[in-house]
Structures are given as structure tokens and as C-alpha cells.
């Protein structure tokens, strides 16, 4: 056995040696080319999306990255990297893996504030540098079309007459839960819950008569809500695509949730890189094609610069923390 092993090692070393020789010839030119370029960006920028591909955060990132590449607003392409898992912990680990040089950034939403408010994952807002917001969208509350109540007022009255008589489909500790809790606090009612951790679950439970109220993104409602009835919209103003759905503020409840598309870099990323990326993003969000896509999908196209976005986020985080304390 021992001799076998010694021979094995000799064989390994010799085979590896041959392979190495082959490798140096292929790798050297790459190393040379990296030393030459100057000015940001010199190589592709990795954009980390903390979800599997296909969701809103992912699609928006890809559209914008495509547009920037098409128009040449950055010298190098932006490459989307999907890192799902761990309430964003995996994505943030990826973000912080290299130097904060602007070549690895992240595209997320205010869900990051949820993770922070719920103390999931070991990160805080100070770990990030905000690049800016490229628009966003608001959700709405929907009930079944054949339900006896047709408006938020009727739902509130029903719940006040018989507390906990209606079932709300939410993922406990997720955005739908928080928004529902804020509204419930404002209006002074209480619902029962049923676990629904995705839009698909909420739709399935609501349509199947296993839940009475659920939260949807406005775009989901537009395409899938044939048998649903939207009763309240949580945007600042009414959505142009849904002119008949009142906002919560109009109805007298101070609940607003505008979930933005937020671009983040690790803290310590140099100004030059942040400004360059922000410039490209701002151009992209003002591009007619992107505006058209946003409007069709009930998203609002707008640009908010990094610092304003960070201030807004801090305010929102404050109010989320109060809700988190109450519901835990």
C-alpha cells in the first residue's frame, strides 16, 4: 500500500507539471492585458441580485444593464450575478468578498431594510454606500371579486364588528406582513394570518377561498387579478394603470410603501466609481424604452441620488423597527 502511494504521488506531480506548463502559456496574455487599462471601469462590473433570476429585482437590473451596454454609457458591461439565499446574507457575503472598488455592486430593494429590522443576517446600513434609486413600485391589497365587501371601508367595518374574522395571507416577517400590520394599527382592526411566502402562494390561497385578503404588486394584479378586486393602493399617489383604486392616504390611513430599485456598493467604494455608475443609471432610467417598460408594469420610473436614497432608507428603517418590535 505504501509503495502504491509513493508511486501515486510521483505520478501526480509529473502529470501536474505537464498541465502547468500548458497553463502558463494560456494564462500569461490575460495577466498582461489587465495591467494596461486606466480609469473606471476597466473591467466588467458585477451586479449582485439577491434572488434567483426572473423576479422584479432581477429583471429591472438586467434591463438597465442591457440599456447601459447598448448605449455605451459605461466602457464595460454590467454583468448580473444571482446570489439567492439567507435573506440576502449570501449576496452580501459576495459583495464584501473583494475590495470595495466599485466592480462589485448590488441591486436590491427596501427588503434589505426588512432583513435589518428583523435582525436577520449580520449587516447594517452603514456597511453600504448608496448609489441611487431607479424607480420603484407600490403594492395593493386585493380581495376576491365575489366577496361581500367591495372596499377597504367595508373590510374595516366587517373586521371591527367581528374581530379576527378574516384571514390575511402573509409571510410572517415579510413586507406584506409589515404593511398589513401598519394598516391594521392605523385603522384599528385585527386579522388572522395564514403563511404565504410568495406572490404565487398568496394568489393561490386567495383564489382558493383559503384567505380573504392578500397583498400583491400592482403589476401582478394587472395581469393575474381577473377574479380579484383591488381595495387599496399603498403608493403616494394613485397609479396611472389603476386609476380607480384609492390610496391608503386618501382613505385617511397614513400607510405608504414605495419599494424602490436600490443600487448599493460596499462602504468605502471610491467617489469616482460611484458617480460614474450613478451617471449611467440616471441616463438609463430616463431612456424612453425603459420608461415604457416601467409604465406597462405599473412601476414608476424616477431617479433619486444616492444620499437622498440613504436618508429615506434610514427614515423607513426607523418606522419598520417600531413595527418589528410590535409584531414580534
Amino acid at each position: 500500500m505504501a509503495r502504491d502511494f509513493r508511486r501515486a504521488i510521483v505520478r501526480t506531480v509529473s502529470a501536474a507539471g505537464i498541465a502547468l506548463a500548458a497553463l502558463t502559456t494560456t494564462c500569461l496574455p490575460q495577466l498582461m492585458s489587465q495591467a494596461q487599462a486606466e480609469g473606471f471601469p476597466e473591467k466588467p462590473i458585477r451586479v449582485i441580485v439577491p434572488f434567483k433570476p426572473g423576479g422584479r429585482t432581477d429583471v429591472v437590473a438586467r434591463l438597465i444593464a442591457d440599456k447601459i451596454q447598448e448605449k455605451g454609457w459605461l466602457e464595460q458591461p454590467m454583468v448580473i450575478v444571482n446570489a439567492d439565499g439567507g435573506a440576502g446574507a449570501n449576496a452580501i457575503a459576495q459583495l464584501q468578498r473583494g475590495e470595495p472598488d466599485g466592480y462589485t455592486i448590488m441591486h436590491w430593494s427596501h427588503e434589505i431594510l426588512m432583513s435589518i429590522a428583523m435582525n436577520l443576517g449580520n449587516f447594517k446600513l452603514e456597511d453600504f454606500r448608496s448609489i441611487g434609486l431607479t424607480g420603484g413600485g407600490s403594492p395593493l391589497w386585493a380581495v376576491r371579486k365575489d366577496a361581500p365587501y367591495k372596499s377597504l371601508e367595508e373590510v374595516v367595518t366587517a373586521l371591527k364588528e367581528k374581530p379576527r374574522s378574516l384571514v390575511e395571507a402573509v409571510g410572517i416577517g415579510s413586507i406584506p406582513h409589515f404593511i398589513g400590520a401598519m394598516l391594521a394599527q392605523e385603522a384599528g382592526f385585527e386579522t388572522r394570518y395564514v403563511t404565504a411566502n410568495s406572490n404565487a402562494d398568496r394568489l393561490r390561497l386567495l383564489l382558493g377561498n383559503n384567505a380573504d385578503i392578500a397583498l400583491f404588486a400592482a403589476s401582478e394584479y394587472v395581469t393575474q387579478g381577473k377574479d380579484l378586486n383591488a381595495i387599496v393602493y399603498f403608493g403616494r399617489e394613485r397609479s396611472p394603470a389603476l386609476p380607480d383604486v384609492p390610496t391608503a392616504t386618501e382613505l385617511g390611513y397614513n400607510v405608504v410603501w414605495a419599494n424602490p430599485n436600490w443600487w448599493l456598493a460596499p462602504a468605502g467604494t471610491p467617489d469616482e466609481a460611484v458617480q460614474k455608475i450613478a451617471g449611467a443609471l440616471e441616463k438609463a432610467i430616463n431612456d424612453p424604452e425603459i420608461i415604457e417598460y416601467f409604465k406597462q408594469n405599473t412601476l414608476d420610473p424616477y431617479w433619486t441620488d444616492g444620499e437622498t436614497a440613504m436618508t429615506e432608507a434610514q427614515e423607513t428603517l426607523g418606522s419598520l423597527r417600531t413595527v418589528a418590535e410590535r409584531i414580534q
Binding site: D84, G85, G86, A87, A89, N90, A93, M118, L120, G121, N122, G171, I172, G173, S174, H177, T195
Partner: peptide, 16 residues
């Protein structure tokens, strides 16, 4: 069911 970590023993990687 409740959106909170459990049995992760402090490892963030275990969150998912």
C-alpha cells in the same frame, strides 16, 4: 412560518 432564524447557531450562511 415566522420569518425568524432557527438552529443556525449564529452562522449567517445557514440562514437559507
Amino acid at each position: 412560518s415566522v420569518g425568524r432564524d432557527r438552529l443556525t447557531f449564529g452562522f449567517d450562511s445557514l440562514l437559507s
